[in-house]
Simulated scan of single mutants.
Amino acid sequence: MKSRWHHAMRLLFAVMALTLVLTGCGDPTLSALTPSGPVAESQFWLMKLTFGIMAGVFLVVFILWLYVLVRYRKKSGQTGYPKQVEGNHKLEIIWTVIPFVLLIIMAVPTVTIGFDLEKRYDKAEAMQVNVTAHQFWWEFEYPDLGIHTAQDLYIPTGKKVQFTVTSADVIHAFWIPALGGKIDTNPGDENHIWLQADKPGIYKGKCAELCGAAHALMDFKVVAVDQAKFDEWATKLKTASVTPKTDLAKQGQEVFKKSCIGCHAIGSEGGRLGPNLTDLASRERLAGILPNNAEELHKWLKDPQAMKPGNKMPNLNLPDDQINALVEYLGELKIDYDNGLPKQ
């Protein structure tokens, strides 16, 4: 019995140690514990405040429990029950007032910060971005710039960005942990949130609401650059060339016009049921999760469901020669732009 108890304790200790080690794993750009903007900073401060209060309460209760455990344990030679003490008005008032005071300490900054984050800014005060969530990708529109794009969200540093979020299908949630959030995207309704990146960098975003088979793969990337770099990106995206350069790419363009343009746009032409592909070759990831290279693109076009289960892109059952032509054409859709940030 004793050895079984020791085995259980060793197993518990191993699990606790492994849990502690695993907390250090993960992507630092996908963590609310590394805030990189004023919204994330204020939310992180609230987390530290509440954690500190809860840790303090736990410590006091634990110390009192240990004191009572030792002070009032059964003594050697003791018979019968010890003297019973019932009721203490002073103690009852203290342990009623203290939690009330602690709740006030947490509630006041929480409500204050909550109202501040609820503010909505017009285009004179913040850049406007419309976000539409789809199963399982993200669409970004810059209404004042006339830009539609997908998966890669470019924003200028040191400037508020007012997001208007909605959904094209089911409920999703827009979340950029290092910048703040999250907020639900509801079909047929709009929610609003503002965020700001204080320094250049690449920050990961996720869908934080279970939304279907590929929910875990519904990622996007935020690229925060200075204002000059952002303006350069916007200008080059709007003037991007979509003219194919090789004969194979010209064949791919014809395949695209015949099979793909109803759902996907390149430049100002095409549908919006699928991601805009104007700068597809400039993105580091395909479908938000795959390395952006010809081999992975060929696999995606061959069988999208095998690569990202549950997504809404149908298998067009194209022959390999047409897929090769499409890969060539889409591989040329690149803007001459360097954001100056390390690749991820």
Rank of each mutant, 00 (worst) to 15 (best):
Y81G: 05
W65C: 11
L91I: 11
Q43R: 12
G262P: 08
L66I: 15
M218A: 13
P177D: 04
A17N: 07
V222Q: 00
T246I: 01
L11F: 04
A126W: 03
A32I: 14
D336M: 06
I171G: 09
L280Y: 10
H298R: 10
L297F: 06
M218S: 14
S167D: 05
T132C: 02
S3F: 08
T185D: 03
G270I: 10
G267T: 15
T29E: 10
E296P: 04
A216V: 07
M127H: 15
G270Q: 11
A126Y: 02
A168H: 14
L301I: 07
A168Q: 10
I193Y: 01
Y67R: 15
Y72W: 14
V327S: 03
L316I: 01
E125G: 11
L297V: 02
K229G: 13
M54K: 13
G288I: 07
F115Q: 09
K74P: 08
I176L: 08
Q253A: 06
F100T: 12
L316E: 00
I53N: 09
H148I: 10
N324A: 02
G271V: 13
E296C: 04
I323N: 07
I53G: 13
A281F: 01
Q135Y: 08
S282V: 05
A8D: 02
D231I: 04
L318Q: 01
V101Q: 10
D116V: 02
G310Y: 05
H215I: 14
P309F: 02
E41Y: 01
A126Q: 09
L179T: 09
T79K: 13
Y72M: 03
Y154P: 05
P109L: 06
K229R: 12
T149P: 08
G56K: 03
S31T: 11
D169T: 06
F100M: 15
A17V: 04
T50E: 14
Q344F: 08
G158N: 09
F163R: 00
P156D: 05
G56Y: 04
E86L: 15
F140Y: 09
L248H: 06
K312D: 11
M307N: 12
K334G: 09
E209D: 12
T19K: 15
K182A: 15
D338G: 04
R285T: 03
W138T: 05
E41W: 06
L277E: 06
S36Y: 12
L237K: 11
M218H: 14
A294R: 00
Q305M: 09
K119V: 13
H264E: 10
V39W: 12
F163H: 00
G87W: 02
N292V: 00
G37S: 01
C211L: 05
